[in-house]
Amino acid sequence: MIFIFLLLILIPFIPALVELAVKKDKDPLIIKQDYSKDPAFFGKSFSKILEEAISKVDIELLDSLKSIDIPLSSDKPEKLIFFTNEVGGKHPRSIVFVRGQESKTVEPLTTNKEVIAYGSLRIEHSTFARSMLIFGNLEVKAPLEVARWIHVEGEATIKAPSILGINFYSSEKITIDASCTFTRIYAKEINIGWGIKKSSFNNPARIEGNIKSKEAMSIKTADRSLIIEGNIISEKDIIIEGDVWVKGNIFSHEGVVIIKGVVVGMEGAIKSVVGKKSVIMEGNTKIYGYVHTDGEGIIKV
């Protein structure tokens, strides 16, 4: 009887004792020690992988090829198809690589993989891609849908309604003059529409320091422009409309709406507009830096 009792006590410990002996799951949780927040993360990582894969191929041979299979990820080789200056067509399973310095679409372009442009790319026909890596400028004149990320080394101009993926990065300037959806946008200067004038901020009213609210807040100018020197933080929605220049960051645990005339940040600095559940921007607004939402990002022009 004692034996059965001891056995019944011991049984629940057996998996624990086995694990203590075998040590199958003993490693510490992985913390990436070189992690640093970088809005260009996706593009840079992909570039690095691409570079490593291509470095294994003979460069002279590469120039003459129309397509090639390269080991991009550990799963299986990816097919890369090459274009020179004109690109288009349906390539659902291939990565599209455009070699030319000044390229454009000549027909609708579709791929479930990445589009890479070695130079600038002008999108003149509706285009769908998983991600885009553009080493020059990007000009979008026809609807574009990107599922993951867009990385542009030059300037990006969006003139047609687009879905801008989960991360849209330009190392220079982004101008969006069409209704779009987004999750994150980063550039030294982001223009929504074209119409912000510096003269709008002549003789402004000023608020020094930060603004914090636990409730929803709305800041709207009428006759006189307003400069807010600090951050605007709220637990609820933040709505800013008119000639308001926020020199700090805007952060809401709910949503942020910035409408017509609002400027965030300043030239030479990076500031952020973060609305955890939504960010809505209506032209004409300008942000020096970063716009982020984990929910819905909408641009209305």
Binding site: I270, S272, Y290
Partner: peptide
């Protein structure tokens, strides 16, 4: 879930 302010990018 409430997250911290880590999504803010600020060069200053």
């Amino acid at each position: 879930q409430k997250v911290s302010y880590h999504d803010i990018l600020d060069s200053e």
